[in-house]
Design a protein around this nucleic acid. Structure first.
Lengths: 305, 305
DNA sequence: TATATTCATGATCTCAGATCATGGAGGTGC
DNA sequence: GCACCTCCATGATCTGAGATCATGAATATA
């Protein structure tokens, strides 16, 4: 017996058709499916050719379903709903708790929106974020994923670079006042005079302003002034800078959004590549579930921006 | 609300899963779907990963469905059957009668298995083959497709080359006897001495042995002997050659299978490119349906072999 | 023990499906 | 009536999900 009509049709075409029917708009269907309007147009055209019948009428930019398109639409929608329902048992089976450990700075400044985006796409996955600045607690094997401030080597974690650390002094426009127009040209003394904001160094490798100036060859005329403010966490230090309280050392990738949106401004023309970076770690010698790998891939894909 | 699990699964994976379930054998499922066993294995693995649950257990070469795989299998089968049923209305809409006109030689020697292959893949399409050697009847606009012996130009048909004509004398091994070992080296006189088989020339451009020898610069020592046999159709002439009755002029592409399988042997080292060829024609200035275009494409894709 | 068959996977390939750019058609506002 | 906007269609081009190839491991059978 000859093959069935369905054998000649890629099933994905029905998903595209369904979206086009619900929206009555190829452009909007494309946006829903994350493909271009042109791709939707082609898929529909090919489906019509395979079926040997038009499914839509086009008049200028107006779409309408043909009678046979309408009947098929109803059935395809039923099919997809039935399929989705068929997968319900796998939702809970698939539902995982993923434990991620990250330092306070990464948690507050970088992970927030990324975890929200991931969760939106993976509603069945429960996320537990362990925020600590203690390197020992960070690297605990109790976690599925970690984000470590590191040079890239760790005996118990397989590390992949998220972004290298690039430290640069930053302040808010309010703090800068008239200096805003030439923020990139400020000298070290002018920067120091604005008031330095520091934070507790839980990690021996973290760079304070003292180290920052030292690594840049002591461009100050005098000694490094003590910080006007010092906070227990990096995020609080950045918050203070945002509030106009002075100059903080910003890790460029962590504060990228603030820089882009003008809430913080980079000062001077020098920055410091510390040789460290933020690394995403998968456990060595232990299999992880698909949700862990999904989050791992999502964080890497999104990159440092 | 976050996206559904179904949004992350290519629907084709369900077709592969269904086939694997019905056969309980990835190799056989691949053969059904025209993909390799390796491709089936990968698709199933990816599906299991997306669902976060195994669907099959594997023990050596033995497959078994897991409980959740079993439940999903039942639902997927239902889904695909429902989809197939949903397309029934398009079967009749898609069912077409395609009229194809071709000369007797092409019909008998070339089209047979190709039309069978097409029909097997397109069970809903009815094929009507008009076999005639009359050029007028061949080019009739009553047909959807034609195969014309031509130079490639026709006012009413858009022609695409199937294969160029290359004439070569052929005979069966039985006819050749001891000469078989040096069939490629026979002289014109030796060829003629085997007895010539000719056919009625309905098309003024068709080449008989007289023209063949003439075009090759009269390599015979004497005049062209009259044919021992002459048939009303080309196919009958070839049948006679197959039966060992003498030498016929074969159009290489039409008798390719006979040559390949040793039922006919090409004689001498010369062949004649006539400047003509067999062309597949779509009507000019008239839209044709998808089935016509499908057959057109199928015949072109299969090429001259 | 040898052979056959099946599934899994590393390495590599490829074309169906995608994007990009652009044009035509209709709708809307002025 | 014109300018602008939005949508669909399509030629030209690109590309990565899905495929193949080759091979190894595991089981069943003779």
């Amino acid at each position: 017996m000859g093959s069935a009509l369905l054998d000649h049709i890629p099933l994905e075409a029905f998903r595209v058709f369904d979206s086009a029917c619900r929206h009555m708009n190829f452009s909007r269907a494309g946006r829903e499916l994350n493909i271009t309007q042109a791709a939707v147009s082609r898929r529909i055209k090919l489906l019509e050719e395979e079926l040997g019948a038009p499914l839509f009428t086009r008049k200028g930019k107006n779409l309408a379903l043909t009678p046979s398109g309408e009947r098929l639409s109803i059935r395809i929608r039923s099919t997809l709903e039935y399929l989705e329902e068929s997968l319900e048992p796998f939702r809970s089976a698939r539902s995982e708790v993923v434990s991620l450990a990250a330092s306070g700075s990464v948690s507050h400044l970088w992970l927030g929106e990324r975890l929200r985006a991931f969760s939106k796409d993976n509603p069945a996955v429960s996320l537990r974020l362990m925020t600590t600045d203690s390197p020992t607690e960070l690297a605990s094997e109790n976690n599925d994923l970690v984000i470590l401030y590191s040079t890239g080597e760790h005996p118990r974690w397989h590390l992949t670079l998220l972004f290298a650390e690039d430290l640069v002094p930053v302040a808010s426009p309010a703090c800068l006042g008239d200096l805003l127009t030439r923020a990139a040209d400020l000298s070290a003394d002018e920067i120091a005079a604005l008031g330095l904001i520091d934070y507790e160094r839980f990690n021996a490798h973290w760079i304070s302003f003292r180290q920052w100036f030292g690594r840049l060859g002591n461009p100050l005329k005098g000694p490094v002034p003590p910080p006007r403010f010092s906070f227990s966490t990096y995020a609080l230090a950045i918050n203070a800078a945002l509030a106009g309280d002075g100059v903080a050392l910003g890790s460029r990738a962590l504060i990228a959004r603030h820089l882009e949106e003008g809430r913080l401004v980079a000062l001077g023309s020098q920055s410091l590549h510390t040789g460290f970076g933020y690394y995403l770690g998968l456990p060595r010698g232990r299999e992880v579930g698909p949700a862990v790998r999904a989050l791992h891939n999502a964080l890497l894909r999104q990159g440092p921006e």
